[in-house]
Amino acid sequence: MATEAEVREAFRIQEFYCRHMDAPMYARLCAAIADGLRRDSRTGVRVLDWPGEPTRDALPLRLCGGLHALVRERRDEGLAAVFAGKIMELDAIAAALNAALVKHDEELVPWLDGPPQTNEPGRSGALMVGLMEIARRHGPRIELLEIGSSAGLNLLIDRYAFDLGGTRFGPPDSPVTIRPEWRGEPLAPAEMEIVSVRGCDIQPLDATDPAVEARLLAYVWPETSARAERLTRAIAMQRERGVELVRADAADWLEARLAEPQQAGVTRVLMHSVVWQYLPEDSANRIRAATAAAGARATAARPLGWVMMEPNRAFAQQIVRVRSWPGHDGWEVLATAHAHGTWVKNGIFEEDRRPIELPKSAKVEAG
């Protein structure tokens, strides 16, 4: 069980990352919670007496998602003023927060029950950097297997249009264009055909359910309206044609998929983003072992790839890296990226190797 001091520190860490990620309102909110959260609500007590590791459990984002849902539903004028930037002083923000917790206690407690679902279509832009590298190495045809798919929005990667610093890919008439701010080196184009996309999640969400859509939108930081619009368009794409997403343990599912016959001339690729930290150690070890075994069996006709976008907390950014078999079994770092895909920096530069000055703990889910 975390101490109250550790819980408050978790909110200070999230404040730090929000500031670093250009979300000043959420930074103020997290600072006010860290300093001013009281025990006069069930929600407040549960947060301050958190039974797990609050930063690893993304506790700040669980609570902030619930608060944002109240604002989106126009349920609390005080919180709405905080989110609109009309209340700036931390003491006043804390007062509005604690009043909202008392007033909406029963509604907010369930938001603490599970990790935040920050399924973000913008992450597909960073993942595409890795997939293009796999296509350059092993040929254009790719079969995608995604673990931790959440609501399956990145399973639409074959239906999105991409503009990656002028390198374009995907159907030009797609309702969603992934166009991150491009930094660093130009992306070398690669011919690529995504022949299939499948995914799993331990607790998948049906994004086409209006209640689930509302929940996903509550986890979108309010400063980033473009993300909310993109999310809405992606969900509309799912309503038009669904994705292949099943409920399964990631290790169980991947082991079964890697044991299936593989079509000649198609590279099978494991893909994931902001997932690894949530896996139990046993599951992570099984995935490593299953992938290494499949890699040892891979041939030029039936290659295997692994593409990930996962956080390096010491640098407050995501790292895009790849490995593939045969011939490229060592990890290669290709790019860094914003946690929501707002920007992608192709290539690794000296400034990317200098860690930022962190608060006391570096363990935090960026959101």
Rank of each mutant, 00 (worst) to 15 (best):
E77W: 03
D40Q: 11
V109C: 01
I13F: 13
W331V: 10
E77M: 08
S361F: 11
Q203K: 15
W182S: 09
E9S: 14
L254N: 12
L145E: 02
L156T: 11
T208I: 00
E223I: 09
R257N: 10
C200Q: 12
D249V: 07
E191A: 15
R56G: 14
L59R: 08
T208F: 00
L245F: 08
R19F: 14
P359L: 06
V45L: 02
A96W: 02
A316P: 06
T167V: 11
D49R: 04
A10I: 05
K363L: 15
K345E: 12
G139D: 11
F16C: 05
A337S: 15
R42Q: 14
L216W: 03
A95Q: 14
G165E: 03
L59M: 09
G166Q: 11
S196I: 01
S150M: 00
G148E: 11
L97Y: 03
P186D: 10
A23T: 07
R56W: 14
A316W: 13
R141N: 13
A207E: 04
S324C: 12
R38I: 02
E240P: 04
E191F: 13
H272D: 11
A298E: 10
I93P: 00
V243G: 04
F16M: 05
L61T: 04
E133W: 11
E223T: 14
R42F: 09
A188E: 15
G341I: 12
E89S: 10
Q262K: 15
M25E: 08
G36F: 01
N346A: 05
A362N: 06
D352V: 08
P326A: 12
A234H: 08
G341S: 13
D209A: 06
E229C: 09
E181F: 01
I134S: 07
Q203S: 15
V274T: 12
L270P: 05
G66C: 02
T43S: 01
A335L: 03
I87C: 04
I178D: 07
N154D: 07
E73S: 05
D249I: 07
A151E: 07
L156F: 13
R159T: 10
D201I: 03
E120W: 08
T177F: 06
A31Y: 02
A2W: 13
E106P: 08
A298N: 12
A2F: 11
Y17M: 12
W182F: 09
P60N: 14
M132F: 07
A314L: 15
E365V: 14
Q238N: 00
E255K: 10
R72G: 03
E185L: 08
E244L: 12
P110F: 02
G125R: 05
H104L: 02
I13K: 13
E4K: 00
L48H: 03
L48M: 02
S174T: 05
H340V: 05
S174F: 04
G165Q: 03
V102M: 01
V71G: 04
